[in-house]
Design a protein around this nucleic acid. Structure first.
Lengths: 119, 119
DNA sequence: CGGGATCCGATCTGATACTG
DNA sequence: CAGTATCAGATCGGATCCCG
């Protein structure tokens, strides 16, 4: 209720709120290569429901990170593509991806140590 | 149920799941300067409840991103600090922060355009 | 001071069904 | 094909009370 207003005052929080949706990151990553259609995205992103995918795409489009193109074929074809703005964000997220891959071992080790101590 | 098992196979998803918690990022950012005590954190991070703060700190500690030091004062003092590992992640997140600040105008403009069109 | 335990309403999700 | 609408279940988050 007041959070929406508050969020506008903090850009970082806003962007993080978007990325907080892990699906958004996966969708963006998937679109980074080339435009993809709705059901193809659904098939390629393991575990996402069509409802959530549709919601995520709408948010990404609203933020100007993804574009939506409709082709008047029968049946209709809709292609989602990453925008130049989306691409710059994607590049930034890549740094995070690298961090994750580089440090996953360390994190997993820390978790195991923590869990053993907690018993 | 099976998601926990799945997540282990994808480092990026795991790290994103941690950062997906917007509070985690805020806590990490706040600890980046210097160690802080529990209630001080609660006061400084606007809007967080003590329950959520406690949960977030536990997760960050489990991941080895934050350390917890207890001092036997009366009453007891607990100080949370960022670890070297946490610091490297924090640096990566900073890139995201910069992207957010640099592009917030563009994103807000896109949102307004989208909302006008949707009417 | 630094939390844990509990209750409870708000939110999110998945599954299913339907449409242009 | 590309979605929207709906409903029931799971999860989350805040508020409150309590303890060492």
């Amino acid at each position: 209720m007041e959070y929406d207003a508050y969020i506008q005052t903090c850009p970082t929080r806003m962007v993080l709120d978007r990325l907080a949706d892990k699906w958004a990151v996966l969708v963006l990553g998937r679109l980074d290569d080339k435009p993809v259609r709705f059901n193809q995205l659904k098939r390629e992103i393991d575990g996402i429901s069509q409802k959530v995918l549709s919601q995520v795409l709408k948010k990404l489009e609203r933020d100007g990170l993804v574009s939506r193109a409709v082709f008047a074929t029968v049946p209709v074809t809709v292609e989602y593509a990453i925008t130049p703005l989306g691409r710059t964000l994607s590049a930034t997220v890549d740094a995070l991806r690298r961090w994750a891959e580089d440090n996953i071992e360390t994190v997993l080790a820390a978790q195991q140590k923590y869990d053993r101590a907690a018993v």
